[in-house]
Amino acid sequence: MGSLQLNSLIKQFGKNTDGRIAVNGISLEVTQGEMVGIIGKSGAGKSTLLRMINRLVEPTSGSISFDGTDVTSLKGKALKKWRSECAMIFQQFHLIDRLDVLTNVLTGTLGRRYNILNLLKIFPKEEKINALKALHKLDLLGKALQRVETLSGGEQQRVAIARALMQKPKILLADEPISSLDPKNSKIVMDDIKKINNEEGITVICNLHSLEVAKQYSKRLIGLSEGKIVFDGPPENLTQELSQELYDLENE
């Protein structure tokens, strides 16, 4: 139930001969309710992998399936439905700075309604209540009517999490959620993500630059290097040499 399967997923940018291969044959399975941390250097293909799962990036070959449904062949309405089921949060929050927090949270529901209502910025009462509940859960209810640009980075990322919750997702894809935040806010945001994983049973796949944070929050780590899986298992199994290979190559 609710398992996500990737089968020899490949993504190549550019033409055949000189194209850069970002993801090079990744196969893995994630079961419902897991919290997976993906670790690796920048450029290892972490971000491309997450974007492929959401279908923001089209895989060159290979397939993704969820509960037996082939995600890679979805089109139109079905694709939109899939995207709303696997919510995404981004390193730079990707919020609409000039709109208020509540409207930003409500943008998680845009795919579900007629565009004429979307154009007029009309949201049903129940959606507003849900949005406020999500904000309450993240301790941001008091800021609901402020413009996003007046919020701190940590608060903005939590608004993005509230927006993701509005999608009633089965999976939460977090692309470097704390890379633009200070340590204190990083902790708040990671705690919130963990809480969602625990309380709502939402699968979380989280790209993390910091190995420390990854070890602390996930029971399963996946190490990527040059688009390939070099490690998959609990943090205890991660050897010193392997973590050095994953991170310290840059220093050489």
Binding site: L56, K80, T107, L110, G111
Partner: peptide, 11 residues
């Protein structure tokens, strides 16, 4: 923010 909306299933 367009990318975020697309990732949430918005057209």
């Amino acid at each position: 923010s367009c990318e975020a909306i697309r990732s949430a299933g918005g057209g």
